[in-house]
Design a protein around this nucleic acid. Sequence first.
RNA 1: GGCGCUAUCGUCUAGGGGUUAGGACAUGAGAUUCUCAAUCUUAAAACCCGGGUUCGAUUCCCGGUAGCGCUACCA
Length: 502
Amino acid sequence: MSNSTSSKARVRFAPSPTGQLHVGNARTALVNWLFARQQGGSHILRIEDTDLERSEVRFEAQLIDDLKWLGLDWDEGPDIGGPHVPYRQSDRMDLYRVRAEQLIQQQKAYYCFCTVAELERERESALAEHRSPNYSGKCRNLSGEEVQKRRAAGEPAAIRLRIPERPIRFHDIVRGQVQFDNESVSDLIIMRSSGVPVYNYVVVVDDIEMQITHVIRGDDHLSNTPKQVALYEALGSPVPEFAHLSTILGPDRERLSKRHGATSIANFREMGVLPEALVNYLVLLGWAPSGGNRETFTPQELIKEFSLQRVTPSPAIFDMEKLHWLNRHYIKQGPLEKIHALAQPFFQKAGLLPEQPAPEVDQWSAKLVSLLAPYVDKLEELPQKAASIFRYDAKAAVAAEDNRETLSGEKTRAVVAAFCTRAGAEASLAPERFKAIMNEIKAETGAKGKDLFHPVRVVLTGSHSGPDFDKVIPLLEEGYRLALPVHVKSVAERIIEFTAAF
RNA sequence: GGCGCUAUCGUCUAGGGGUUAGGACAUGAGAUUCUCAAUCUUAAAACCCGGGUUCGAUUCCCGGUAGCGCUACCA
């Protein structure tokens, strides 16, 4: 629309390095990224570490790893620099101080000598009298001389912003026009008496300085926004567009947190959730394409089709089942080499595959993965799914409650005996030979369907259900010949073991 | 307590002054000449409540209720 280069969208993701990257923040980052990429604008990563107590460097590194894992990138940030360095707030303290002093000189802000204890008392009595706990304004109109004198005497002072005596309104892309009466926004502290600036202030200073055009963040900041709007005005800068994304809730409708289980990006990665599944799921929380009848999107498609205007303002409950469904979708759809590579570590961790697999082992495990992967919600379930391959135990199979019905069938003994003599005679059972044997047994014993196949399945895999025989049998016979950390028993070995146990 | 935000199937959502209120996950049923959480088909399932505007409201307005958020010298 505008032809000036300064109108290019500039957005930022500004996390605090106080813990692991959470799905809520990840969605905020994703939406910022999508918006920037779609607008041909810039995406900026800024680290908000003004809370020195809780911020840790290692969290910053992890944050960056998690964002990259999700497939997001940025054009300016602490790791890559940019025209507005530094991108870490703890390195920008001088700027905040200078700007605060300017505000004092312009009388848009003032020194406040009230002590924390004093303010706390005021707040409590206001609450007790059902008044809103606003700042009394005690230091609002101190004379210049008095301020001079008290400061010279070394009395600690915070700096407060003067909030105008009128309603504050602003526009929000997902909520429309929002208005706050000024009574609900009292003069806020922008610099602590310790000289450390406060979040609501530094955000605005940085967003102005970094020329942010669209502030996209969680709606827990919505009530902070009037304060920030007042700050923009005091600082003499245009107010950006806002977009407040709704909260992600747990199944109990409470804000999603650790106690709801896995909620950090690292958790999902460790469970074997694919980043494209997580990205796809997160974007669907609060957004749907026009028509609303499409669910799966690649990042490229999202860049094209995502629309901030279509984001819903209502909070959404995080649904693990739907994430699993999307994960299965991407597991089934992904190229086998890729899924195999991602799955391998899970088998290695379980001690089922070697750390340095030989080429023939690699080939075999690729088959294993392609057989099992469509049946898992997350890659971490794979070793468990492979139990019938690696952990065959005839005694346990015979004793299993699950198999009782199958093994106590009228024709079971005859079927098992016929199968074991025939298949046991094969050096290596080929799928075609298997089919022929089954037909022979069918004719000989009269068993068919479940009565025929289930007992054989128990003999071979220890369970009455599982993947196709065509695929399982070659996997067993080939696995048997490989040097694996856990020996894969051949068909013949299984038959011998089963015969002894049954 | 005050202020703000939100409200369509169990869940994520589409839609919109007159519709058979659409899709997806989950659930039930059926199919896949063995099973299976995979696949296909199919069924059941929703407009928070009350008032107003209107010929007509789930849709627009107001109120209520509920949920969530903010209310710090936290971010």
